[in-house]
């Protein structure tokens, strides 16, 4: 099985600097780590490979320094590492990012499954995975917590929801985004680290992957960051008083007025 794992470099939690003009993170200065959710994606890819054979390729779009992080993934069982890097990719939003990744993946050739982390801990959008699947014209499932079965051209997985999980069947090739519950990422091994040292990360430019420069980076971005904040998710509850009969009447009236039920 040919598996591609998309990963993102994110700032370590210790020091994050924001560019006040673009309201985006200054990636050059911060201590860089692989997005923690992507570590679970890598682990799942490596586990699948160990079960079914094939190979795992990690793919990222980012600054040249990201190559060092990608190389480290070899130490946990990844076979190949590919980095898309180009000035033209700078300032990309999720749309432009998924375009570049899609072009990169087309360049890499045949694959069975793409695995992404559910979201990145810096942008928190959770959009690149699904957007990438759309660009490639393949089915996807987000928040996957378990792969129940996978074979040639078919997979069944559990997708986490707020109050349980759904079982999804999909034809392959497909894309999944995974939650951290799916596995426990392994530690690197010494032999893996020695292998990683010798591994060359394949570096591709916008031209190499045949990308339309108008769809890359800031130019290809449909969104602009104006300000960042944590959205408040509030559920307002209203308490209904009165006797049981009065409470029932109030409730029915409300349901009627909200058109949740109809009078027959």
């Amino acid at each position: 099985m040919n598996i591609i794992v998309c990963v993102k470099q994110v700032p370590g939690t210790n020091e994050v600097k924001i560019n006040r003009e673009t309201n985006t993170i200054v990636r050059e200065s911060a201590e860089a780590i692989i997005n923690p959710f992507d570590e679970h994606a890598i682990e799942e890819g490596v586990r699948l490979k160990e079960k079914t054979g094939g190979k795992v390729t990690v793919l990222s779009m980012g600054i040249p320094k990201v190559a060092d992080l990608l190389r480290e993934t070899i130490a946990v069982g990844v076979d190949d590492a590919v980095l898309l890097t180009d000035r033209a990719f700078a300032g990309a939003d999720t749309l432009a990012t998924s375009y570049a990744l899609a072009m990169g993946i087309r360049k890499l050739g045949e694959f069975d499954l793409i695995i992404c982390g559910k979201q990145a801990i810096d942008g928190d959008t959770a959009q690149v995975g699904p957007s990438l699947a759309e660009k490639l014209g393949i089915p996807h499932a987000t928040y996957v917590r378990k792969i129940e079965e996978i074979r040639d051209g078919y997979m069944r997985c559990q997708r986490m929801t707020d109050d349980g999980y759904e079982v999804i069947e999909m034809p392959l090739p497909a894309l999944i985004t995974v939650v951290k519950e799916i596995n426990e990422p392994r530690l690197p091994s010494i032999k893996g680290k020695l292998k990683a040292k010798k591994t060359e990360v394949k570096v591709l430019s916008a031209e190499d992957i045949g990308a339309d420069l108008n769809l890359c980076g800031l130019k290809g971005s449909a969104t602009q960051v104006i300000k960042t904040f944590t959205p408040v998710h509030e559920v307002k509850a209203e308490m209904i008083d009165g006797t049981a009969r009065e409470q029932a009447r109030t409730l029915v009236d409300k349901l009627l007025s909200m058109q949740f039920v109809k009078r027959t």
């Binding site: 392994r186 530690l187 690197p188 091994s189 010494i190 032999k191 893996g192």
Partner: peptide
């Protein structure tokens, strides 16, 4: 098991 995974058991 972690030591084994990391190849440390046989250093």
């Amino acid at each position: 098991e972690f030591l084994a995974q990391s190849d440390l058991c046989g250093v």
